[in-house]
Simulated scan of single mutants.
Amino acid sequence: MEPAAGSSRTGRNLPVAIAVGAALGAVTIASLYFVKVLFLAVVIAAVGIGVTELVRSFAARGINVPLIPALVGMTVMIGGAYWGGTAWLLGSFAMTVLLLMFWRMFQGVENYVRDITATILVLVYPSLLAGFAALLLAVHGEQGNRGADLVLVFIATTVASDIGGYFAGISFGKHKMSSLISPKKTWEGFAGSALACMAVGGWLVSWRLEEDVWKGVLIGAVVVVFATLGDLIESAIKRDLGVKDMSSFLPGHGGMMDRLDSLVVALIPVWVLLTLLV
């Protein structure tokens, strides 16, 4: 069967996907450089949608994760990380886990371990991981935009992984990375991701952070590994839950978690490298 007009070999409507991606990028950059707190709100909203998608997908398989308490805990973690730092992020995460363990206990002991395990997964991925974006944003520099520049390096380099991998994969992809987990991912796509990440990382670190190009290239090399792992983790979760996309919230992309997967997994190693190198 021939793909529908405007559709790519992956089944996505490419023009719609590009338009939605451009709109998300514009909102992100505008909020990042004009009002930092607004960007923080964008992060909380995006991660909140991702958490909601995960919880509903679990619920469809009979796995009980309390949505509202999970959203409250996520908001406290991300907001607290910006104003209170790493200690607040980790402390609020631990307290949220304990409170939700107590919460679930009073609903009965049947499937307690299963539900709590899923709950902790939601609180880590994406909630806790996203808090490290707030830590980057909170960094101050002489011009006041240092944190925004650090976040831009992270986001742009990670997005470059998706874009480079997509176009290299549909153009040259032949050798599958893991047919068991994600049959569409290829080593040729991975090579395209690597080149795009290292090019964008080197360019932005040199331009926005005024640091050596090799630092950005190194960050890009680390990003491509963890961004690809993030995609594979999300694919494994979806295959286990029996869904193609987490939702249809973003036309041409799927759900919010389908866009956050590589970002949240790549975030901590990028935070470590930026902290050490920059």
Rank of each mutant, 00 (worst) to 15 (best):
G6A: 07
G6H: 03
S7C: 06
R9Q: 12
P15R: 00
A17G: 14
I18P: 03
V27Q: 06
L32F: 02
K36R: 13
F39R: 01
V47S: 01
G48F: 02
I49D: 00
V51G: 09
V51S: 03
T52F: 03
T52K: 09
V55W: 03
R56G: 00
S57G: 14
S57D: 11
A59M: 08
A60C: 03
R61N: 15
R61H: 12
G73P: 08
T75F: 09
V76A: 12
G80K: 00
G80Q: 00
G80Y: 06
L90C: 10
S92H: 01
R104H: 13
Q107R: 14
G108W: 11
E110I: 12
Y112S: 08
Y112W: 13
V113Y: 10
D115Q: 06
I116R: 00
I116T: 14
A118D: 09
L123V: 12
P126A: 09
A133T: 09
L137N: 07
A138D: 02
H140K: 15
H140Q: 15
R146K: 14
G147P: 12
A148F: 01
D149W: 02
D149Y: 07
A156R: 03
T158K: 01
K174S: 12
K174C: 10
S178F: 11
I181Y: 08
T186M: 07
F190T: 03
A191R: 00
A194T: 13
L204T: 01
L204D: 00
L204P: 01
V205A: 09
S206F: 10
S206M: 13
K215V: 14
G216W: 03
L218E: 10
V223G: 03
F226G: 06
L229D: 01
G230L: 13
I233V: 15
S235A: 14
I237V: 15
R239V: 12
L241D: 08
G242H: 11
K244N: 12
L250I: 13
G252I: 12
L260H: 05
L260E: 05
S262T: 11
A266P: 07
A266C: 10
L267E: 02
I268H: 02
V270D: 04
W271E: 01
L276T: 05
L277A: 06
